[in-house]
Design a protein around this nucleic acid. Sequence first.
DNA 1: CTTGATGCAAAGGATTTGCACAAAT
DNA 2: ATTTGTGCAAATCCTTTGCATCAAG
Lengths: 147, 147
Amino acid sequence: MDKNLSWYKKLFEKNGYKFTAQKRIILLEIINANTHLSVNEIYDKIRQKNIGLATVYRSLKLFNELDIIKQINIDTVSYYEMKIFSGKPLNIHFKCSKCDSIIDIDNKDLNLEYIKLNKKVEEENNLDVYDVNIMLIGVCSKCKEDK
Amino acid sequence: MDKNLSWYKKLFEKNGYKFTAQKRIILLEIINANTHLSVNEIYDKIRQKNIGLATVYRSLKLFNELDIIKQINIDTVSYYEMKIFSGKPLNIHFKCSKCDSIIDIDNKDLNLEYIKLNKKVEEENNLDVYDVNIMLIGVCSKCKEDK
DNA sequence: CTTGATGCAAAGGATTTGCACAAAT
DNA sequence: ATTTGTGCAAATCCTTTGCATCAAG
């Protein structure tokens, strides 16, 4: 087991949960995907391993609670992705309203600018902001071409 | 009927839909709320008028199609609010993770800055962006106090 | 009279829960 | 042993759909 997984194992146990084979498999899928996944996408990848849908839901709920994944809701469908701290403070998602594809937008400069804006919101409204979801809607480059 | 409502009536009829009493009642609730409403919040306000839940869903779907309302999804719950063009190009929502309240954040300067950032995203990724949903998550001022 | 709209109830889809059994400490 | 986790099926919640009827043009 590599270093990272044992880190997660410790986190689970510290909070009174067991790091079972099922949770390990589900977590690895999300880590390896490196993008957002829906419950069904996760379930499809692991269904041959005899893991029930309810277990997927329960694991995701737990991961969320422990703050290791992030849930993104797009048109009533939920997607999940890892929270990664270094160099990727937040993820911006773009949805094409023509082809419905969802694109991850990741750009350090942009992220920094968004963070500055968040600071401003915090100050002006007396809030603590610790997470942001930004969802852009429009037409992607492919759909701009074929019209 | 005031000017605004007759504008909506025309919009509906131009698109082959009737401006019924039910749609009028539902639309007025959203206009008067001046904030985001869930389907249940809308339904509760009008249920005494003998309007079915299905009609609420159908009307919201239609309003969305005609682009007069905007749908916001927060943790699998959908909220609806008017799209207002003048001076309110976008709405930023903040959700307190302690008390679950949702606060509308509206500030012209902030909106302008966000729009600049969106331009940057458009250019760098060759996209057309025409709508943005920004959702901040954190702790509200009330919950910051009572701890 | 023709077309779209409505209310109701049934259907559908996503998510959660109850329960008996299995696994881990 | 005790506690937590799992798979399955049933239950629940939100949303959509089918159908008979109603209303508007």
